[in-house]
């Protein structure tokens, strides 16, 4: 089977949807030369009228897309840096997101915001390394973090077809992932549905984005000793709570691996969901960035703030040992 890279999957999904639906257009900085590679070849295929290079005016072009959506288009807005979401937060959280309810259902705002290269890109320092998906889940904007090329393809397609604003985070750590795919079988992946990448019976590891691959590696390492189920929510909001609780019913133990800041972060929501809706046999653990972390520039410091395999192993050790010693809480 041919290999598809994550980056190419995003490019392909966008190109396929632009071919299918003439109302899809792209706004962003340097999207014609395709600095991020996601938009490679699109201006040649679809023309400058559908692939628009914007001046450095994020707040304006984000709401420009809202206006275009209200007038019938389905724009994709590409942001070069995750922290540009802080700049355009008003335009997404307070404008695009609120039209539907505040208009009493008269308006819909089908805009997709794409973040190719979210999270740490090693040595891009404090203002380029955030992973603020939790903020969007918190305010209720549909939030997607695909882990694999086929999910990247399918979730981006669904985001473009959805009638609400959707933020799609494509973690820097996942862009290089490649997968054997049957191109004919590629299709939309529904929003709001998680995926069990690996079934297990001892502990559920909920992993987000690129960290799904770390979780799978750790699960492989532990095979035979601890049976790890790897659950990828794929959509952080709305969260597949049913899928999550079903997994916890099988395992009774929970570790969350989440590349965002700890306090009030996505992992906390997963833990809260478990506390409310599942019967856990051991206190759950979360492996995250530190509270309030600002990623430092020096690579070793940057890495020290990122959740990874070592932390995950230790956390799995903890939740499984507690039970082994008969100390379930």
């Amino acid at each position: 089977m041919p290999k598809l890279s994550y980056l190419k999957a995003l490019n392909r999904a966008l190109g396929d949807e632009m071919a299918r639906d003439a109302s899809v257009c792209v706004f962003g900085e340097d999207v014609r030369v395709a600095v991020s590679n996601v938009t490679a070849g699109l201006v040649r295929r679809f023309g400058p009228d559908r692939v628009l290079d914007t001046p450095i005016s994020e707040q304006a072009f984000t709401s420009f897309a809202t206006g275009a959506a209200l007038a019938g288009l389905r724009p994709l807005v590409e942001f070069q840096i995750p922290s540009l979401l802080f700049l355009a937060f008003e335009q997404i959280a307070n404008q695009a997101h609120k039209f539907s309810l505040m208009s009493g259902g008269q308006a819909r705002v089908p805009v997709t915001y794409l973040l190719p290269g979210s999270g740490s890109r090693e040595a891009w320092a404090g203002q380029h390394s955030d992973h603020p998906y939790g903020l969007f889940a918190h305010v209720g904007v549909k939030t997607v973090v695909p882990a694999t090329p086929s999910d990247a393809y399918g979730l981006l397609l669904s985001a473009l077809r959805d009638d609400d604003p959707v933020v799609v985070f494509a973690p820097a750590g996942a862009l290089g992932v490649r997968e054997d795919v049957d191109f004919a079988a590629l299709g939309p992946v529904p929003l709001g549905r998680g995926r069990v990448h690996r079934a297990g019976t001892d502990v559920t590891v909920v992993a987000v984005g690129h960290l799904v691959h770390e979780a799978l590696a750790v699960a492989g390492e532990l095979a035979g000793r601890v049976s790890v189920e790897v659950f990828d929510p794929r959509t952080l909001h709305p969260l597949d709570r049913a899928g999550l609780t079903a997994s916890l019913a099988r395992t009774g133990r929970l570790v969350v691996l989440d590349d965002s800041n700890r306090s009030c972060g996505f992992a906390a929501e997963v833990l809260a969901t478990a506390a409310e809706g599942a019967r856990l046999r051991a206190a759950p653990r979360r492996v995250t960035r530190p509270e309030g972390a600002v990623l430092p520039f020096a690579p070793a410091l940057d890495r020290a703030c990122q959740p990874g395999r070592a932390g995950l192993l230790a956390a799995i050790e903890e939740v499984t040992t507690v039970l082994g010693e008969g100390g379930g809480t």
């Binding site: 203002q127 380029h128 410091l301």
Partner: peptide, 23 residues
């Protein structure tokens, strides 16, 4: 080593910092 190229600063010399966000 916490800032790097895009955040180099020297407050003693009145350099309030490079800044990675345009404008």
């Amino acid at each position: 080593g916490r800032g790097g190229s895009m955040h180099a600063a020297d407050f003693a010399l009145g350099v309030l910092g490079a800044n990675a966000m345009v404008g």
